[in-house]
């Protein structure tokens, strides 16, 4: 191909370097069946007609099937925030199919060509206010907004709900939430109070000092006395509950409903 390229576009080659293939194709591109003759064809004489190929010259061996080779990762520059990947101007290395189908064709990214690299070089440093704190922050927010947190409290000893209770309950669910990021409802929640069993409220979590997310919570009373324990409630997150504080009803209704929550329940 490059042999004939010179002939086809000779006039520009002298003017500009844009048509030179070296800066574009760093590696050889062979993504197909590469075949080889088992029997080499007859030698042709100079200036005479080429000799006819015989059936044996059509016996091919497969040298390489490049369709089964793993392609290297591809560099793209994001033009929008992509959750779990990066913010605008970030150069990310992703799998080629994902990059082409999900990022480039949807316009969420551009090729990491020298021109684009230059264009997005100082993009992040020039932004005055960031919309997202990190690549995965939005994913964390989405994750937390789907949770219904069961806060396990004592059934016998009196208590007032504190952030460390919430932190411990989060830890039981597999979320590491620092205490200072938890904001409880302004009115204190005290117990033991068995009426709270069928009611819900929300706490506000701040991710990376930036994104705020409300998490649906429910108090569950527990005791060491086996006979006094409340019966096990199956799939408690699927039940629709009343708010502890009636002024929170609107915010609780807006929260992402749980998976499997039926409207009629």
């Amino acid at each position: 191909m490059w042999k004939t390229l010179g002939k086809a576009v000779a006039p520009i080659l002298r003017e500009s370097l844009i048509l030179t293939p070296e800066n574009v194709l760093q590696q050889q591109l062979r993504t197909t069946y590469i075949l080889k003759r088992r029997n080499s064809p007859f030698l042709n004489k100079n200036g005479s007609l080429p000799k006819r190929l015989k059936a044996k010259h059509y016996i091919y061996d497969l040298v390489e099937d490049t369709n089964v080779n793993r392609e290297p990762d591809m560099n793209v520059i994001l033009t929008t925030y992509v959750a779990g990947l990066g913010d605008v101007g970030d150069k990310v290395a992703v799998r080629p199919n994902y990059a082409y189908n999900k990022l480039l064709m949807t316009g969420q990214a551009v090729y990491a060509s020298p021109e684009n690299v230059e264009k997005f070089k100082d993009y992040q440093s020039n932004i005055e206010e960031k919309t997202y704190s990190s690549a995965t922050s939005q994913r964390a927010v989405d994750c937390l907004s789907r949770v219904t947190l069961s806060i396990i409290m004592n059934k016998e000893t009196p208590w007032v709900l504190k952030p460390w209770h919430v932190k411990a309950s989060f830890r039981k669910c597999g979320y590491w939430v620092p205490e200072e990021t938890i904001v409880l409802p302004t009115n204190p929640i005290t117990g033991p109070n068995l009426e709270l069993e069928n009611k819900e409220f929300f706490v506000t979590i701040t991710v990376n000092n930036m994104e705020k997310v409300n998490v649906r919570c429910k108090i569950h009373h527990w005791t060491t006395e086996v006979v006094d324990r409340l019966p096990h409630e199956k799939d408690f997150w699927k039940k629709k509950l009343d708010p502890v504080f009636s002024e929170d009803a609107a915010i609780l209704a807006e929260l992402t409903p749980n998976k499997g929550l039926n409207a009629d329940q």
Partner: peptide
């Protein structure tokens, strides 16, 4: 398309560059 076609487009940083850089015989 074939996989090679997509790879060529990616290597040339876009479909237009691929079309305009590649001679008709290819």
């Amino acid at each position: 398309v074939t996989r090679r076609a997509i790879q060529l487009i990616n290597a040339n940083y876009g479909f237009d560059h691929y079309l305009l850089k590649t001679p008709a015989c290819d």
